[in-house]
């Protein structure tokens, strides 16, 4: 159960089968907003992957060692959002100081991430999937981290695919009322349909 395959299956599941954007609809706002060209889309994806991974580590630790021992599970929403917001702020300051070049690429995206459903979503999902009756399952911490990373990777993949399509869509003759967001949703729908082909796989 706890072999390496369990972790690989989590990655495949979050990237392809239950892709965060295309099947869970988490992180949809930046998916529509920032997917106009490939460069920013990938930067956003990397920033999200970094934050989802770190947020998984932080929120799991806090849930297991602070909220459960004190019987404060009902403060989950409040604590998680505060932790994520503080972490994003902190990361922004550190990156700005240590690597201005990286900050120029990722900076503005980091600011947008606090209210990104994907980050908060993966934190809550980790708790729902890897804790049973208030107790962590075997390998729960590593699985959470892997799921956090996989969620970000799946987000990046969807962003990359979508921005590639949208760059070409610029030259297509789309009815005026369908320009921008509406046609993006239609394209996303077709992508989601394609990703549905992965469902049913379980490794």
């Amino acid at each position: 159960m706890d072999s390496i395959s369990a972790y690989i299956s989590i990655i495949i599941s979050t990237v392809f089968i239950n892709n965060f954007i295309l099947s869970r609809f988490l992180g949809l706002c930046p998916f529509i907003g920032v997917s106009k060209s490939t460069g920013p889309a990938v930067s956003m994806g990397i920033a999200v992957t970094f934050v989802t991974t770190m947020a998984s580590i932080l929120t799991w630790t806090i849930y297991e060692f602070v909220l459960i021992p004190f019987g404060l599970e009902y403060l989950r929403t409040l604590t998680f959002i505060l932790v994520i917001a503080s972490f994003v702020q902190f990361a922004e300051i550190v990156i700005q100081k240590k690597s201005p070049a990286l900050y120029r690429v990722l900076g503005i995206y980091l600011a947008l991430i606090t209210t990104n459903c994907a980050v908060f979503g993966v934190a809550v999902l980790n708790i729902d999937m890897f804790f049973l009756h208030g107790k962590p399952l075997a390998g729960s911490f590593l699985k959470s981290v892997v799921q956090g990373f996989g969620a970000g990777a799946g987000f990046t993949l969807a962003m990359l695919l979508m921005s590639g399509i949208r760059e070409r869509l610029e030259f297509a003759e789309v009815p005026r009322c369908m320009k921008d967001a509406p046609i993006t949703f239609i394209v996303a729908s077709l992508m989601s349909l394609a990703f549905l082909g992965f469902s049913g796989f379980k490794i």
Binding site: L22, S23, F25, P175, C177, M178, A181, P182, I183, T184, F185, I186, A188, S189, L190, S192, L193, L196
Partner: peptide, 13 residues
């Protein structure tokens, strides 16, 4: 999921 995206795309249009 695809049905949701299709519906909202058409409605916004």
């Amino acid at each position: 999921a695809p049905g949701a995206l299709l519906t909202i795309g058409l409605l916004i249009g």
